[in-house]
């Protein structure tokens, strides 16, 4: 099996491996996990050299055969999110590939299955995810039940606005700015009309849905693994998001808070 793949089949294998890396990166895996997964899968099929370079929005792979012919593929990645179920499944798949070396068709079929696997429905993300995070973090940061209920509404609204602006391809900086402006605006209005006592708890609690905690953690792990470029890109992204949040909140405070 290992040595008698034709060059065409090696190219298909390269394509499939880069698909695997692409899905991993899109689901929010660390850069070193993407690079190692691609390398392990390709080495399992008896390729002499595999060189992988991955950063946050680009993967390049070159394979060298025993007879020194080379194939290179470059994949540009545009969207990025967090989907741990998919990372887990892809991780299991790459382990399975290294152990059993299935034919390329089977890998493609399994990749498609993983890609089409259902996520939580949108209402659950709005009301349990975003609204739930805002609700409990408001309580966590010292709000009472009234504050938490206002935060619940803010959180649900944040997700709706976020999705709507993503749909029309607005850039991330502006989305975060608008969302944080909206959150602060609603929180301050609620306090002005005596619906809730603590505006600070509501604002901090709801902003936790937008704070780039994952980007910071992953950038740290990338830097440790030696992927400085990818790590710096993620750190920069986190910094920009934090800046957008500060600007949006600040604008609302100036408009309503009388600073």
């Amino acid at each position: 099996m290992e040595q008698n793949l034709s060059s065409f089949e090696y190219q298909r294998l390269l394509n499939t491996a880069i698909d695997l890396g692409h899905f991993l990166l899109e689901a929010g895996a660390e850069t070193y996990r993407v690079e190692e997964s691609i390398q392990r899968v390709l080495y399992a099929y008896g390729i002499k050299h595999v060189d992988v370079f991955a950063i946050t929005n680009n993967i390049t792979v070159t394979i060298t055969m025993a007879d020194d012919t080379c194939y290179t593929r470059l994949r540009r990645i545009y969207s990025r999110g967090t989907n741990y179920q998919r990372i887990e499944d892809l991780n299991n798949l790459s382990r399975y590939i290294c152990e059993h070396r299935p034919p390329v068709e089977e890998i493609n079929r399994r990749l498609k299955e993983i890609y089409r696997k259902k996520t939580y429905p949108e209402w659950a993300i709005v009301f349990l995810g975003f609204a739930g995070v805002s609700f409990f973090f408001t309580l966590f940061f010292g709000g009472n039940l009234q504050d938490a209920l206002i935060a619940f509404v803010c959180g649900a609204l944040t997700r709706v606005v976020f999705r709507a602006m993503e749909y029309v391809h607005t850039n991330g900086f502006f989305i975060n700015l608008v969302c944080s402006f909206l959150i602060t605006f609603i929180a301050l209005l609620a306090v002005q009309y005596h619906l809730a006592p603590h505006s600070n708890s509501i604002i901090i609690g709801t902003l936790m849905t937008l704070v780039p905690g994952v980007a910071i953690t992953n950038s740290m792990r990338d830097v440790i693994a030696g992927d400085l470029v990818a790590g710096m890109m993620k750190a920069m992204e986190a910094l920009l998001v934090a800046l957008a949040l500060a600007m949006g909140t600040g604008m609302a405070l100036i408009v309503l808070g009388g600073i």
């Binding site: 741990y84 739930g132 409990f136 966590f140």
Partner: peptide, 13 residues
Amino acid sequence: LSCAAFSIYFNVS
């Protein structure tokens, strides 16, 4: 509980 809510957002099984 906030971690539970975040897990739903991050699509943890």
